[in-house]
Amino acid sequence: MRFFIWFENLDRRILYLLVVATLFYPLMRPLGLPVGLSETTQVAYDTIERLQPGDIALLSPSYTPGTIAENLPQTVVFARHLMKRGVRIVGVATRPDAAMFNDQVLKTWAPVYGYEYGRDYVVLPFMAGDESYIISMGRVPFSELHPVDFYGNSTVGTVVDDIKTVYDIDCVVDMLTGDSLTWYIRQLNASFGTVVTGGSTAVGVPGLMVYYASGQLSGLLGGLKGAAEYEVLANTPGTAASGMDAQSLSHLLIVFFVLIGNVAYLARRKAAEQ
């Protein structure tokens, strides 16, 4: 009983310390746990597989640097798969940081897949306006909306020229923390039938499952696990799979604490009744 009372009054900092330990240990010594395969990841993979060489995809990393642990591996794995398929990529930015992520990811992987800037991919600057910006994509000519790229050069002569209307966009791939995937679904999928897929931080997945179930969202990578699953599927090894061990152990720690907490709670309640 004394243990349970001690546990119930446990300083939260001890719990935090244990979380740090469970995160660090597997990063130092990987355990090699299996990652599994979710249905939503498989559907996202199949969506990209259906694209043909020369098709155009919007790559939209709509997150802040805070969530790079989950969203950046998703961006990398999608970008690499798109490049493998020969799909032309237009990097758009609904957040100021997004253009930096596009620049970082596309510049890194373009030489590997023989992609040439302008012809095969382009990085566009941040556009303010949030959902209004997405609405604009469907109503304002794309080249008029984006006369210059992230580097300040004209977009004339680049892949942007080939987006005459919204129907020239074959797929939108949005990685997010926030609402941007819902904007794309509402404004482009619901209005013009554009195919939308992407990845979300794990916490956003339950809310987005509604759109997946209705068929408006063609697959979804859920957090780091989704990225790890995709890395295995697309045979593009990256950082996500190695981070999964740390995530698994910290989940187990929380489950363990919740269980012990409940045993302590029930024991205390029984003692009080007696």
């Binding site: 355990l31 299996p34 990652v35 794990a202 999964m244 995530q247 698994s248 929380i254």
Partner: peptide
């Protein structure tokens, strides 16, 4: 529990 264990490598 179902969601958390299902998301871990140990659960798989």
């Amino acid at each position: 529990f179902a969601v958390m264990i299902g998301n871990t490598g140990v659960g798989v």
